[in-house]
Computed example of a mutant assay.
Amino acid sequence: METTTAPDDREFYAKLKEEIRDAAPKLGIDKIGFASAEPFGELKQILLRHREQGYESGFEEPDLDKRTDPALSLERPQSLISVAIAYPSKLPNPPKSEPGAYRGIVSRSSWGEDYHKALRKRMAALESFIKERVPDARIESMVDTGALSDRAVAQRAGVGWSGKNCATITPEWGSWVYLGELVTSIPFPPDRPLTDQCGDCTICIDACPTGALVGPGQLNSSRCISFVTQTKGFVSDELMRKIGNRLYGCDTCQIVCPVNKGKNWTHQPDLQPEPEKVKPLLKPLLTMSNKQFRERYGDMAASWRGRKPIQRNAVIALGNFRDASAVPLLSDVLLHDDRPVLRGTSAWALGRIGGAEAREALKEAERTEADPEAAERIREALAQLAGNDERA
């Protein structure tokens, strides 16, 4: 992208860049990089193929031009700034699941304060820092929900490389980082992009519970547990079994990454986890009202889809734990909840747990259930119990 910056201006912006880099830690930013604002032409072709194969999640910006051309976010952009803040990967003194008191788990990306808020605070401080020095600078900040690809900007700006697990991996902080970017009218000298350092390693691809990583850097979102836990509808039997006790997100492909080994970051106070919130008891989740859910979990990124997905996933977890003590509660959900997805998922869980009480609840529900999908789940659960009896 051409610019008419004079030689003395280039010196000023190079110096400003170093001032920003020096100030970043005080602003709560762990790594920062600078890149040109040229369109991401190669990325657009990758995203087109991704869409053609049906791998999108539906949560992305639908306009591929906006995702790959900074000029559609800010008129006449001159450079991009990528920022990363590191978050923890280990839970201190984690509460343990026990029979009758089983727990779910929330992914590390939702530990502490909602990362959207945490990033916005830091990026607002960075924007103020820049505008104090260049008052007429035009800046557009983006966090996750922005149009541009966070990972593409981070790689071009030398913050990290795009790993085979579809995460940005930084040499210093691993992939336990939140990303944001600023599109600016200031022509900062660009940093050197980071090239792939995964080499021949395929540990993350091999470890993916559902095979959602269909190739290096290629994710079929419809099979990704992180995506599935954020949906609101029915989930297939196969994927429910794979979800385990995950309430939100999935960290498997990051946990197994060799670069992340031994990395845990505790220096950002607002991102530290509250053990009882990130590994909560499952049964109390099912009786929470919307108000109670917002009061308890509303400051977490995991709350963005509301309580329904979390409650559905709690039902799935109770089924996977085969928690017999949960049968009365699951039976109540099956027979009285006004949400078909919760009723049908409870039927699945009761079918997994089994027993006379579960069977009676399912038979009663079979007589009264009006929703076709929930009714099908009830019939499948009863068939599973009948099959178990025959094998006994």
Rank of each mutant, 00 (worst) to 15 (best):
D196K: 05
D196L: 06
D196G: 05
Q197S: 13
Q197T: 09
C198R: 05
C198P: 09
D200F: 09
D200R: 14
D200H: 13
C201I: 07
C201K: 07
T202E: 14
T202C: 08
I203R: 15
C204E: 04
I205H: 10
I205D: 12
D206N: 14
A207F: 10
P209K: 09
T210M: 11
T210W: 08
A212N: 12
A212V: 11
A212Q: 12
A212M: 13
L213A: 10
L213N: 12
L213S: 10
L213C: 11
L213P: 14
L213M: 12
L213Q: 11
V214S: 14
V214H: 11
V214M: 12
V214D: 12
G215V: 07
G215C: 08
Q218M: 15
Q218T: 13
Q218H: 15
L219V: 15
L219Y: 11
L219H: 14
N220T: 08
S221P: 05
S221L: 07
S222V: 14
I225C: 06
S226K: 01
S226G: 14
S226Q: 01
F227V: 11
F227H: 15
V228E: 04
V228G: 03
V228I: 14
V228P: 06
T229R: 03
T229M: 05
Q230P: 00
Q230K: 03
T231Q: 06
T231R: 05
T231I: 03
K232S: 15
G233H: 04
F234I: 05
F234Q: 01
F234R: 00
F234K: 01
D237V: 11
D237H: 12
L239V: 07
L239K: 06
M240P: 05
M240C: 08
R241L: 12
R241F: 08
K242Q: 11
K242A: 15
I243E: 04
I243F: 04
G244S: 10
G244A: 09
G244I: 11
G244K: 11
G244D: 11
N245I: 02
R246K: 10
R246I: 02
L247G: 03
L247D: 05
Y248I: 00
Y248E: 00
Y248W: 11
Y248Q: 00
Y248T: 00
G249P: 01
G249T: 00
C250Y: 01
C250K: 01
D251W: 00
D251T: 00
T252H: 10
C253D: 02
C253P: 02
Q254R: 04
Q254F: 00
Q254N: 01
I255L: 06
I255A: 02
V256D: 07
V256M: 07
C257H: 08
P258Q: 03
P258A: 05
P258M: 03
V259S: 02
V259D: 03
V259Q: 08
N260H: 02
N260G: 02
K261Q: 13
K261F: 13
